[in-house]
Design a protein around this nucleic acid. Structure first.
Lengths: 137, 137
DNA sequence: TACATATAGTTGCATAGCTAACAAAAAGGA
DNA sequence: TCCTTTTTGTTAGCTATGCAACTATATGTA
């Protein structure tokens, strides 16, 4: 029915990938959204929520709530910004630092598996095209 | 950070497309999920919920609740199957038949816009690849 | 300075999606 | 036939996501 629909095929694939990554991050007690956000925070501590939201392409309410979750789990800490008292900077806790490498390793494992399944060339090519489409929208 | 990640780019694009299609179906009072499901039901009335769930690549609880929504809006009707009394067949109501053409027209309009933006060749190529990846997973 | 506008975050309320647990009916086998 | 297993749907409870509305602070301008 929707074989040629970009929306249908994109969202459908997104659900399949979501299931794949859910399994990968389960040992950490993290959902894919939480895990990817945490990886971003670990890679660059001190980002403002606004920038995190832009970077992950979600709205600020979504970012606010995902951070609530990570905060409750003890993986991140929010501190008021010095430069702009409206803004809030986000930092990883020690608990997050401990799993940093394992988290990246788990991610790398899934990517490797998918690349093997699809072929590295095909994998990279599709990702590039997806990025190009996102940029065009 | 996740420039080369299939999951990240797919889900990110999915969110952007979701926003695009949300606007398109708003005049009908339908969300994209509801609208695509309704189009499926209009195209082939009498499908069982199980088959609809498989076709849309969602779980049965999700299908059940999306149908609850369409049912509450008066667009679909559920009838117990004769062959298998466990099963439930789904039919469009007259209210749905009335908007059938407009719904497809609205969808076609968005697709046309996206094809123009991305180029028809690129569009079709990406969709084919997404389908291939879905099939491989 | 004072007021209007813009920006950062949160909260309320909605849908979409999942897993787990359940009820009911069908299918299969001893 | 009777019992086990499988299948179909629903319900409960969770996260993810969005929009609208709100608070608080910053910025820009008269």
């Amino acid at each position: 029915m929707f074989e040629q629909c970009l929306y249908f095929n994109t969202t459908s694939l997104a659900r399949k990938l979501e299931r794949e990554w859910t399994v990968a991050f389960k040992p950490f007690g993290l959902t894919p959204s939480q895990a990817f956000l945490l990886r971003t925070i670990l890679a660059k501590p001190g980002n403002h929520q606004r920038d995190l939201a832009d970077g992950m392409n979600v709205t600020t309410p979504t970012m606010s709530r995902t951070l609530d979750g990570l905060s409750k789990l003890g993986f991140v800490e929010r501190r008021g910004s010095d430069q702009d008292t409206r803004g809030i900077q986000v930092f990883p806790t020690d608990k997050a630092l401990v799993i940093h490498d394992e988290l990246n390793a788990a991610s790398g494992k899934v990517t490797k598996k998918l690349k093997k399944l699809l072929g590295t060339g095909e994998f990279d090519d599709v990702v590039s095209r997806l990025k190009a489409i996102s940029a065009a929208l």
